[in-house]
Amino acid sequence: MTDAPESRIGVTERERALRELVAHLGAGRLSPAEFDTRSAAVAAATTKRQIAELFTDLPAGAPYPPTPRVRPVPRFPIIVGMFAVLSILLAVVSGNALWLLLIIAGPAGAVAIAHYRRDHHQVRGRT
């Protein structure tokens, strides 16, 4: 890896530069027309030097704002909700209240599968 000005950049670096341009636009340092011009230049940039040239007249700070962390969506509540809706729908459509047992059986099965996967991956990771 190199930090040379002529080293190539990727999508991540372009996204960070765009977020910084948005911050400068929000702070009033750029007009909408300047923002449009610079954001088009960021999209076309291929090297670190090309990106750096777009920020020479703007106040210094962190080179790029930090990348926001994305929290994973919890799957268990979604699975429970899906089983509840499915079981109620099947009970109403079929007229058989036994379908309501899926409200209990579905999430229990999901928990069992999650435990199996966790244990399976732990054992697999040790060998």
Rank of each mutant, 00 (worst) to 15 (best):
L18Y: 09
D119I: 02
Y116N: 01
V70N: 08
A43R: 13
R71Y: 08
V93S: 09
L102R: 09
P65E: 05
L30N: 10
H115I: 10
P65T: 08
H115N: 07
T67L: 08
Q50D: 06
H120T: 13
G106Q: 11
A23W: 02
R71M: 07
T56V: 14
A114L: 09
P74V: 01
P32K: 14
L100N: 04
H24A: 07
G61T: 00
V73E: 04
G61Y: 03
F35I: 10
T46D: 00
D119S: 09
D36Y: 05
A45M: 03
A91N: 09
G28P: 04
R118D: 04
V22T: 14
A97N: 08
N96V: 00
S87V: 07
T46V: 02
I79Q: 05
V92H: 10
I104P: 03
L54V: 00
A41W: 05
R19F: 04
S7N: 11
L58G: 00
P72D: 08
T12L: 11
F83V: 11
G81L: 09
V11N: 13
A4L: 14
R19L: 07
P5L: 15
H24M: 05
V42W: 01
A41F: 05
R69P: 02
R49E: 03
V42I: 01
E20K: 15
S39D: 01
A41N: 04
I78L: 15
Y116T: 01
R29Y: 11
L25A: 13
P68M: 13
A105L: 15
A114W: 05
A4D: 12
I78C: 11
D57E: 05
H120E: 12
H24N: 08
H24G: 04
F83C: 14
E15L: 13
R75V: 12
A84E: 06
F83Y: 14
L102I: 13
I51P: 00
